[in-house]
Design a protein around this nucleic acid. Structure first.
Lengths: 233, 233
DNA sequence: CGCCTTTCTTGACCTAGGTCAATGATAGGA
DNA sequence: TCCTATCATTGACCTAGGTCAAGAAAGGCG
C-alpha cells in the first residue's frame, strides 16, 4: 500500500497510535481499494474474509430477513473500521452508499497483527465499545420513538457525524449538509417506510425547522427545535 | 475476594484464559457483591465507576427517554460482563431482574489491569464484538419484525441462552424454562406493550406451539414451528 | 433539448398494535 | 385461611404508520 503516513484518516482511524515502524508493517499487509456506489464489499452470512478502514465515502451495514425485509444496522464514515475481526462469519452485509475508498486487509492477517499489537487491539476495543453504545441508542429509537422523533434524531446524528469528519475541531455542528443516502435508505435505518419518511420530512420542513433545497441537501434552520423534536439523546 | 479458581463462571467469564497468577492478581482487586431483584447497580448517565462479572442471576441494561419511555437494550446472564470500561459515563442503567451475585471492580482499576494484560483485553474485545452482533440482530427485530415474530424470537433466544448456561455442552436447547422477566419487561425488550405481549403469547399458546403452565414458565412443544414464527434468525 | 427512468411526494384508505378499562389470577403476609 | 397488592389477560375502541396508487420532480443520455 502507498504511504500510510500520508493517509487522510491517519489520525482518526485505528492505525493512529501505532509507531512509525508498526504503521509501516501494517501498511504492507493492506491494500487500497475503491468501491463503487451500490457495490457490496461483504455479504451477510458469508465468510468474513476482509476487514478495512474507510478512507473516503459512506457505507451501510445491513441485515435482511428471508422474505426480503432489510434493516440498516450501521452507517460507516471515513476513518471508521469495517468488518468482523475474530469471527468467521459476517453477521451483516457492507455496501457502499457512495463511491468509496477503503484500505483492506485479509481478516486472518489483520487478526494476527492485532493480537501481536495490544495498542491496536485497544483502539479496536474502544471503537467497538462506542459502536455498541450507539447501537443501543438506536435500539431505543427503533423500539420507542415516533416517526417524527426518528427523523429528527437521524438528521442531528448525520450533521454531527459529518461535521466531526471535517476534523477541524470537536464538533462544529454543520447546519447544512448533503444526505449520504436516499429516502429508502433513511427508511431502512429508521424502521419506517419511504412514504412516512417523506411525509415527516415535509412536516418538519413546513414548520420551518429545516429546509430541503433538493433531494439530498438539508439545511437546519433551528437546531434547538430539531433537538426538541428528537427528544432524549 | 474469595478464591477465583473456584468460581462457578471461571471458565466462561472474561477471566478465563488468565494464568493462575494473573487470576489471583485480578481477584484481589475485585469483590463479590449481592444485588437484590429490582436494585440498580449503575444509573444511565452516571459516572461509570464499576464494572463486573455476573456470577448468578439475570440483569437488564436499559435506556430511557426524558418522558419515561424505557427500552431494554440488553439482558445479562451469568458469566457475562457488565459496565462500560474505558469510558467515563454509563450510557445505560444496569438493574437486577432477579437476585444476583456479581464480582465487582472499580472501573479505573479494571481499565488499568486490562491495559496491562492483552489476553484479558482480547477476551473483552471478543465479547464486545459478540454483543455488538447481537445488538444489531435486535435492531432488525425492532425495526422490521411483527409482534408475533418478536415474541417467538425472544422465546427462542432465552431458551438458547439458558441452556448454554448449563455449560454441559454446546447447546441442548432447553424446551422448558422459567422466564427471567415479567410481561412488562418482555414488552420493553421487544418494543411492544404489555397487552400485545400477552395477546401474542396467548395466540401462540392456542396454536399449541408452546404451553404456559404459569406466569413465568414456558414449555416449547414444537421448536421448529416456533423457529418458523420467528422467521429469519 | 426532450425522453425515459428513477426517486420523491401526496392522497385515500387500511390494519397492526396501542390505549383505556374491566376482570381474573397469584403470591405473600397477617 | 383470607386479604390485598401486584401482575396478567381480555375486550372495545382508536390511531400512527403502513399499503396502494397516482402524480410530480429530477437526473441521465441520446
Amino acid at each position: 500500500m502507498s504511504d500510510c503516513a500520508q493517509c487522510v484518516v491517519r489520525n482518526r482511524a485505528i492505525c493512529s497510535g501505532l509507531s512509525p515502524e508498526e504503521l509501516l508493517a501494517l501498511g504492507q499487509k493492506g491494500r487500497k481499494q475503491t468501491v463503487k456506489r451500490g457495490q457490496t464489499l461483504v455479504w451477510e452470512g458469508d465468510d468474513s474474509l476482509v476487514v478495512a478502514n474507510v478512507i473516503s465515502g459512506v457505507l451501510k451495514l445491513s441485515v435482511s430477513t428471508a422474505d426480503g425485509r432489510e434493516q440498516i444496522v450501521g452507517i460507516v464514515f471515513p476513518s471508521d473500521f469495517i468488518g468482523r475481526p475474530f469471527g468467521k462469519e459476517s453477521p451483516y452485509s457492507v455496501t457502499a452508499l457512495s463511491d468509496a475508498e477503503v484500505c483492506v486487509f485479509h481478516r486472518s492477517t489483520f487478526d494476527q497483527f492485532a493480537r501481536e499489537h495490544p495498542e491496536l487491539q485497544h483502539k479496536l476495543l474502544q471503537r467497538t465499545l462506542i459502536e455498541l453504545d450507539e447501537a443501543r441508542q438506536w435500539m431505543m429509537l427503533l423500539g420507542k420513538k415516533t416517526a417524527e422523533e426518528r427523523i429528527a434524531t437521524l438528521l442531528i446524528r448525520i450533521s454531527e457525524r459529518l461535521s466531526a469528519d471535517g476534523c477541524t475541531g470537536p464538533l462544529l455542528n454543520l447546519d447544512e449538509f448533503e444526505l449520504p443516502m436516499d429516502r429508502q435508505q433513511m427508511a431502512d435505518i429508521l424502521g419506517l417506510t419511504i412514504e412516512t419518511v417523506s411525509r415527516q420530512l415535509t412536516r418538519i420542513k413546513s414548520s420551518g425547522v429545516i429546509a430541503l433545497p433538493d433531494r439530498r441537501r438539508v439545511v437546519i434552520h433551528d437546531r434547538q427545535a430539531l433537538l426538541d423534536l428528537a427528544e432524549a439523546a
